[in-house]
């Protein structure tokens, strides 16, 4: 049987959902029989590959680079799972929306900084912050939603297993917002 080409990416989140994937422990071995991890923080691939079957996305969209990545991912992936509350609702990543990116930069690099004498923000090499942090589905089509903070590993396992076996699954039995 041809293996599923699986990618995972960590955008604006805390990596807790990626920890949750690892939390599957022994079940990872079971999943590994069916998937090839072609791009992920777990592997050392620099470029997002073509013809990916399934991409799991953790985190919200916060920068111009996130937008560029997400569009490339959508173009190169057959299916996309939004993993965790940040990807689905913006969650903690989006809490700064109530103040705006400018206010957050000012607070971090101005008010609270001891050594930043110029008072400027980092603007070279690092990506530019968007005005508002966005959940994935406000920019691209998301095929499956797996809420949770972090999404319980059992929910990730059950979803992956259902997708591998090609059956429908109701995720509300395994996870919810904030779980």
């Amino acid at each position: 049987m041809k293996k599923i080409r699986l990618a995972t990416i960590w955008l604006d989140g805390c990596s807790g959902c990626h920890m949750s994937i690892l939390d599957m422990d022994a079940k990872l071995i079971e999943i590994a029989q069916f998937v090839d991890v072609v791009y992920s923080p777990y592997v050392d691939t620099k470029e997002f590959p073509k013809d990916v079957d399934l991409t799991i996305i953790e985190g919200a969209l916060s920068t111009d680079h996130d937008l560029e990545m997400i569009r490339k991912i959508r173009a190169n992936s057959k299916y996309i799972i939004g993993l965790g509350d940040c990807a689905i609702t913006g969650n903690i990543s989006a809490m700064k929306n109530l103040f705006g990116s400018e206010a957050v930069l000012e607070r971090s690099y101005g008010e609270l900084s001891d050594i930043n004498t110029s008072g400027g923000y980092p603007c070279k090499i690092v990506p530019k912050l968007l005005d508002k942090v966005l959940p994935l589905h406000e920019v691209i089509k998301v095929d499956y939603f797996l809420p949770g903070c972090p999404t319980p590993s059992e929910a990730i396992y059950e979803m992956l297993k259902a997708l591998i076996e090609g059956r429908e699954i109701d995720m509300s039995a395994y996870t919810r917002f904030g779980k």
Partner: peptide, 8 residues
């Protein structure tokens, strides 16, 4: 409104 379940 802002319903951030995880920190509520």
């Amino acid at each position: 409104r802002t319903h951030t379940c995880s920190v509520c």
